[in-house]
Write a protein that binds this DNA or RNA. Sequence first.
DNA 1: CTCAATTTGTTCGTATGTATG
DNA 2: ACATACATACGAACAAATTGA
Lengths: 266, 266
Amino acid sequence: MSLPGLLNANHRVRMIMGQLTKTYKRSRVPLYLQVASTLARRIEGGQWQPGQKISTLEELGAEFQVARVTVRQAIEVLENDGLVRCRQGKGTFVIQGTRNKRWLKLETEWSALIETIGDNVPRFIVGKGPGPAPAPRLDDGEGALAADYEHLLSVQSRNNQPYAVASVYLARHVYERALEQFRAGMALAVLPNLDGLAIASAHQTLVIGSADTETAELLKVALNAPTAEAHCVVVDDRGIAIYVGDIVYRGDCVKLDIDLLGGSVR
Amino acid sequence: MSLPGLLNANHRVRMIMGQLTKTYKRSRVPLYLQVASTLARRIEGGQWQPGQKISTLEELGAEFQVARVTVRQAIEVLENDGLVRCRQGKGTFVIQGTRNKRWLKLETEWSALIETIGDNVPRFIVGKGPGPAPAPRLDDGEGALAADYEHLLSVQSRNNQPYAVASVYLARHVYERALEQFRAGMALAVLPNLDGLAIASAHQTLVIGSADTETAELLKVALNAPTAEAHCVVVDDRGIAIYVGDIVYRGDCVKLDIDLLGGSVR
DNA sequence: CTCAATTTGTTCGTATGTATG
DNA sequence: ACATACATACGAACAAATTGA
C-alpha cells in the first residue's frame, strides 16, 4: 500500500538546485560546514595567504551557488576557529598567525622507523584488566599466531598533543623477556635489543579511515575525522607473528616519504 | 541583576550531557550521521559479523547517550547503504553479502609502480586551453625547475569508477620526445622508455587530505571526503625536475604496503 | 491459544539548527 | 533582520511483529 501524501511530504525536493547542490547532496553534512571546510583548505593550503583579503561573501556565494547568508555562516565557523577575521565594510582577512602544519613523518624503513620512535614515551591505557588477551587480527601471509599475547594499549604524544593510539599485541614469550622495557617505551623499538631474536619480516599496511568514538576521544579530534590506520606485523624466523600493532594516527599530521628507486629515504 | 526565569528559558539546554555529547560537539556534523558511521565501522571492522544481530536500539541509545529515535535514524542510513537489515520484533542484522572492499594498492617501488599503472587509460581533461603552463609546485630538495612544462590533467578510472585525478607537469623537452605516448597513457610509465634519459631520483610524498569541489565532482565523492594526496617528483641527472605529479586518490580505496626491512640490515 | 516480554516501526509535540530569498 | 520551509534531536506514547512461557 502506498501513501503518496506521506511520501510527498518527506520527499518534496528543492526545485532550486545550485551547481554545488548536487555535489553537496552526496554528503548529508550541512552545507555551510562543507563550504567552511573548503575555505579552510584554501587558507591552510596557502591559496589565500595570511593577511590577504579573501573573496567577498557575494563572490563566494556565486562560486558555490549558495545563499550569501550560508557563506556568512561558514565564515563564522572559520572566525571562531581563528582562521580569519571579518571587518565590516572592509572584508574578511586571513589571520597572520601562521599555523605551521607540523607533519609527522612516517618512516618506511625499519632502522629509520626505530630511530624516530625510539624515545617516544607512550601513555599506557588500562584495558579491561588482566586476563587472556584476545588474539590479534592477522591477514593472509602475515605469519602464524603465537600461543598467547600480551595486549598493550597506548596513546602517543608529541608536544603534549596526542597524535596516535596504538593497540599492540606482543607474543607473551617475547614480552616476558623484557617486561620493564616494553612497559617503558615503544615495543617496536625494543625488539632489536633482544638477543637471539631473529626477525624474518616486518611489514606495514596503511589505509585511510576515520576516528571512532574512543579514538576521537583519545586523539582529541572530531568523531569521524580522517585517520591513517597502520597495521604493522613483525614475524620471527619460525613464522610466528611476534608483534602485531594497529596504530591509528591523526590524519592531519601524517606524511609519508617514499623513495621510489629504493635505497635510503632523503 | 539576574533574571532566572528568562535565563532558564533560553539556557535550558541539554542538562543531560552524555558521554558522546562532548565528543560530538567537537564536530558539527549531525549526530545521527556520527552514530551511523561509528556503527558502520564496527561492521566493516568485523566487530559485528555478517548475519549477526547487533545491539538493540535501546542498548545503542544508552551506549551513545542519544535518543532511541536518533539511533533509529542512524540505522536507517545503514539499511539504505545495504549494511544491515532491520526485522520488527527480532532485531537488526548485518547483511550477509560480504562486500569485499577493493583496495587499490599504491606501490612504493618504481618498477612495481610502473607495472601496475602501465595499462591505465586516463581520461584527459581539457584545461584552460594551450599557453604557457604555470610552473609546478616544488618543495625543497626536489630538484630545479625546467624552463617550460606541459600540463596534463586527467582522471584515472578502474571498472568505470574514477579513483584518482592527476595533475602532471612534464618538462617540455621530455614531453616533445614522445607526444603520442604521453597523450595515450600514464606519463610515469612512458619515462623509462625514453633512451638517454637518466633518472637520478624519483620520490613521492603522501598526505591525507579531503576533496575540494572540483575533485569531489570528478571522483564522484562527497565534498570533503577523505583523500590521499600523492606528490611525485622525478629528477634527471642534471638535477632538473622532469616530472611533477600531484595525484589525488579516493581515500576509501588506497592501501599502502610497506616492507620495513626492504633489503637492508635491521 | 493467550499472555507477556522484547524489539523494531511510527507518530506527536517541542526546541533548535539549517538554508533560502 | 525577518519570514518561511525543512532538518535535526529529544522524550513520550503507541503500534506491530516475534518469541517463548
